[in-house]
Design a protein around this nucleic acid. Structure first.
Length: 269
DNA sequence: ATGGTGGACGCTCCA
């Protein structure tokens, strides 16, 4: 009895509702985690998701920017949990609790939209990059502190491509925010200190190139293939032991009116 | 070295 979780930065859930419903039809995941829904809670298209069989919704949105939502076919095993990660009022996180077949107890599923960080990789002159580092440090503190006893799953747009095999050109992106050593080191420290397994790399080991995002600002994304792996699925070891598959839906980048990110799923059991 | 595109919002910000 498999259980699957999908994560997708949708870049406006209202504009792209048709392709989200298409994805649900194709993959029929148990849980879908969306980032950049770009709408307040009361404008989230809840009715369409309920009609599609996803009756349990945890929406944390705001007007115009950011926003995350986790939707599920089965009930959460407790109320969705709001937490603050130094996000200065931004809606960048929601946690929901789930029973996963084969895993003792419950899993706490964290849906994240980490700040992109602006253009300049210097926290002294760029407040957006400073915010990104503070957000990651708050995640480090939480997952090595009060959340350390939980069976955590972290999914979402972490806005960092950590490995040289997670970008089209390591050398050309070393000074580009998303792949600079300061943020990569911090993300790797978070993963290691909090004992997370990178499930996507567990399934597709290095040195295979993996991308989940391609910029809108290129003539032909598929030909130039200048992608980055900005989206991630991590978990506690007990949950990683149940992983049976990972898929990255690269084709979705070529759909009509696509998001610049593609959906990614982990299957357990 | 530069600028390229896209979404929300409302005379501009963010990615």
């Amino acid at each position: 009895m498999a259980f699957s979780i999908v994560t997708w930065n949708i870049n406006s859930v209202r504009l792209r509702l048709p392709i989200v419903l298409e994805l649900l039809e194709t993959w029929q995941p148990d849980v879908l985690c969306l980032q950049e829904i770009k709408c307040p809670n009361d404008q989230f298209p809840s009715a369409a998701f309920k009609k599609a069989g996803y009756e349990h919704l945890a929406v944390h949105g705001q007007k115009g920017y950011h926003g995350v939502a986790t939707i599920s076919r089965s009930a959460f095993t407790s109320e969705p949990e709001p937490m603050s990660f130094c996000d200065s009022g931004h809606t960048r996180h929601i946690a929901t609790r789930h029973k996963i077949p084969g895993v003792d107890g419950t899993a706490l599923l964290h849906n994240f939209y980490v700040p992109a960080g602006g253009d300049e990789a210097n926290p002294d002159i760029n407040p957006k990059f400073k915010h990104k580092l503070e957000f990651l440090n708050a995640m480090l503190e939480a997952f090595t502190g009060n959340l350390a006893h939980e069976k955590n799953i972290v999914v979402g747009d972490l806005n960092i491509a950590p490995s040289e095999h997670d970008v089209w050109s390591h050398k050309q992106l070393l000074k580009v925010v998303s792949h600079t050593p300061i943020e990569v080191d911090l993300l790797n420290k978070l993963r290691d200190d909090a004992a997370f397994t990178d499930l996507v790399r567990q399934h597709f080991p290095e040195p295979e190139k993996l991308f989940s995002w391609w910029s809108y600002r290129s003539r032909d994304w598929a030909v130039s293939d200048r992608g980055r792996r900005l989206d991630h699925i991590w978990s506690h070891a007990d949950i990683a032991a149940q992983l049976s598959g990972v898929d990255i839906m690269r084709d979705a980048r070529g759909w009509l009116k696509p998001s610049d990110h593609v959906p990614m799923r982990a299957v357990f059991g």
